[in-house]
């Protein structure tokens, strides 16, 4: 990878209780590109975004954003760094007491001294970009899941951040909403020249817009490369994931005693 690096993850270790989530993850997010982080459910993709955003602290290792170690910053400096980041949450995470317009205006009102007229123009431009200028007076509870995510996208890019983190942007969307979101993310990224990190397990959609892909499983990076190279990768983990095979290195069954022993056991022995 020859592009300049925006985010660098070095030897990342993280565990919850006795479960190791990451056991030495190294990855680099190039500047101005869409980098996808993929992997089966439960491999810690969202956890990785929270570590990059400084919401969780790793057990070992470093995460550098623009050369700054996220976890060595003071609370104040961390919040300052976050002003240069946007995040699209799986649920949209819109503020339920503010309407669509005020949700998008929120970062602008907090972090800038812009006059109201200018904030209005910027918000309308962002809402126009996601196709929801006409929905600016609606409350979050009046939006469909897809609309909520589009508003959340407008809010995530309201301050024209350097880095945008997308947490499962396509999950639970109907085909039309999904298509709209894929196009929007691609267009917004191109138009604003953002660096994007996208966590997802929607293979087709993600590979169609990602410039570079990391696949994570068993707490490590199993493979990385361009979407084209991953499609022809021979590794069993990668093949199972990319081609959606139900059984393989990631087993279909959760670990359990032998099925027949379990069925024939006296009541209470295994339960």
């Amino acid at each position: 990878m020859d592009d300049p690096i925006m985010v660098e993850v070095k030897d990342l270790h993280f565990s919850r209780g006795s479960t190791d989530i990451f056991r030495g993850v190294d990855l680099q997010i190039p500047l101005g590109k869409i980098t996808a982080i993929m992997g089966p459910s439960g491999t810690g993709k969202t956890t990785l975004l929270k570590l990059i955003g400084g919401q969780l602290v790793p057990d070992r290792g470093q995460i550098l954003i623009g050369g700054q170690d996220v976890h060595k910053l003071s609370r104040r400096s961390l919040f300052k760094l976050r002003r240069r980041m946007g995040m699209l949450f799986q649920s949209g995470a819109l503020f339920s007491d503010l309407d669509v317009f005020e949700n998008v205006a929120f970062p602008l009102r907090i972090h800038t001294e812009l006059p109201n007229a200018m904030i209005r123009d910027i918000v309308l431009m962002k809402l126009q970009a996601v196709g929801l200028r006409g929905a600016r007076h609606l409350m979050p509870s009046e939006l469909s899941g897809g609309m909520a995510r589009r508003v959340a996208l407008a809010r995530a890019v309201a301050l024209d951040p350097d880095l945008v983190l997308y947490d499962e942007p396509f999950v639970g969307q109907d085909p039309i909403s999904m298509g709209v979101l894929v196009q929007l993310i691609k267009k917004v990224n191109l138009a604003l020249g953002l660096t994007a990190v996208m966590v997802s397990h929607d293979i087709k959609e993600t590979l169609s817009i990602a410039d570079y892909v990391y696949i994570i499983a068993d707490g490590k990076v199993m493979a990385h490369g361009s979407p084209q190279t991953l499609n022809v990768n021979d590794d069993a983990h990668v093949k199972q994931f990319v081609h959606g095979e139900p059984d393989g290195p990631v087993p279909f069954h959760y670990p359990a005693p032998d099925f027949f022993d379990d069925i024939l056991a006296p009541a209470g022995q295994f339960s």
Binding site: K50, G53, Q55, R75, F79, K80, R82, R83, M85, G86, M87, F89, Q90, S91, A93, L94, F95, S96, F106, P107, I110, H111, A152, R155, L165
Partner: peptide, 18 residues
Amino acid sequence: GLMKATEQLTSMEMIGVD
């Protein structure tokens, strides 16, 4: 609690608001 469950607190943190 509902704000936390719907990630509103997290999103506020990520916008740079404590």
